[in-house]
Design a protein around this nucleic acid. Structure first.
Lengths: 237, 237
DNA sequence: CGGCTTATTGACATACGTCAACTATTGTGG
DNA sequence: CCACAATAGTTGACGTATGTCAATAAGCCG
């Protein structure tokens, strides 16, 4: 077994892995290994060829995608999540790169082995399918928000997505640096700063240290056009 | 059998169905049926509960998503494609609505039956997984393009995505009306019109009838920042 | 305490949406 | 078959959101 005690512990927090049948999990992790990586480390580059399926045991990973010189963050994966790019399943080039934005421990699973199990075991395929479906949900929301909302509204929604509260006040903790958050939300750090400044006028205070207090969740929801019914928080299983 | 001769013929063009094992396909279509629907017909609404898995045998379907009063088009499904929302798999509310933007024939498969087969048959799960992975690829690209490119560049990329040529000249046919295309590309019809006007200055001519001639594909690629290596056309099987 | 990075703010440019006018196109009924 | 209305597309004028560049302020670390 190539995986230490501590990492085994961390694996328990990985939804996708714990949903897997025991047999599949054993096969999958048989020649997997774990690497401790610092902030800034690259897991893979856009356009590259998938060698591993990466599991984020701890730390945070940005999925980045660029055109020419510009680059943006498509999504962020954190502890307990699996980095499932289309490349992992299809064998196509990576549609985005992956870089640690917070140091952590990453489990590397041989992609060939993963694909073998996927093809053989319906349960594994189903679990993976669900993960992809969820990713789809998130991406769909991003596309819609980018098309229909202003920077201020996108920030508001991001804050709302980090609390379960639908009324009253709330406190959320932003774990990312401003430039990172700005890239995720599709704006410049300057615009993000201004968006925060604007939200201050509706009772949102960003303390130092990433803590943000929201005076009235409902007010934020109204502002972000999300106060109507539609969309409850999804997350299938 | 509830499905006529003509429709059986159309089913042959559906990639996902023809990748399915015979047994699974038989089960799936056993109590499925086909509806001829006019332009403007709604297949389902955002927030609703999935009852069918829809297959586009002919015509075109827009996947729409709205916040408050505004609405945009997330993607378009055409003949031979399956409308695989996360809702179909997860049982969550639909993340978007679906509306015909061109009349056609739609096959309706009982979603319960689909899920049963998915859980039991690894091959079906794998095929579905691939479809989702492909959808992911497209959505990722949309997110990136919306964040990094101008309206003109997005239009340029859309045109490029409709031709296999990577140099020389090309002719593509736009099958959608301008407002539809504008919504898909995340801009207003006016901006789309101006984008076309701009591209005219680099040798792109949009005739009446949806035919667009591109004088120099390479020039368009350069303009859309896509001239570098990265991204070849993916489409994993 | 003094560089160093990081966040904020200001001034400005620009891309894009909005509103409105105009044109072209398609369909309809006399 | 033509006049007409209705619709889609284009173009112009203008406002606003947001990116850009620069300056300042505020943490951070040696």
């Amino acid at each position: 077994m190539l995986i230490g005690q501590k990492d085994q512990q961390l694996m328990l927090n990985v939804q996708l892995l714990s949903d897997l049948p025991d047999k599949a999990l054993a096969l999958l992790t048989q020649d997997a290994f774990v690497q401790g990586l610092p902030k800034g480390a690259t897991l893979f580059d856009q356009g590259g060829h998938a060698q591993f399926l990466h599991v984020v045991l701890s730390g945070r990973v940005a999925l980045t995608s660029g055109i020419g010189d510009c680059e943006t963050i498509i999504n962020i994966r954190e502890s307990g999540e699996v980095i499932l790019d289309a490349a992992t399943v299809l064998g196509t080039p990576y549609s985005n790169g992956a870089r640690l934005i917070e140091g952590g421990r990453i489990m590397m699973i041989q992609v060939g082995k993963f694909r073998d199990i996927l093809a053989a075991d319906a349960a594994t395929a189903t679990v993976t399918l669900r993960a992809f479906a969820n990713a789809n949900l998130t991406l769909t929301r991003y596309v819609r928000d980018l098309k229909l909302l202003t920077t201020i509204q996108r920030l508001a929604r991001h804050l709302l997505s980090m609390t379960a509260a639908t009324s009253g006040s709330a406190t959320v903790t932003l774990r990312d640096e401003r430039p990172t958050l700005a890239a995720l939300l599709g704006m410049t750090p300057e615009s993000l700063s201004r968006a925060f400044a604007h939200l201050r006028t509706v009772g949102v205070r960003a303390d130092k240290g990433g803590t943000v207090s929201v005076e009235s969740v409902r007010r934020l929801r109204r502002l972000s056009k999300l106060d109507d019914r539609s969309e409850g928080e999804p997350r299938g299983r």
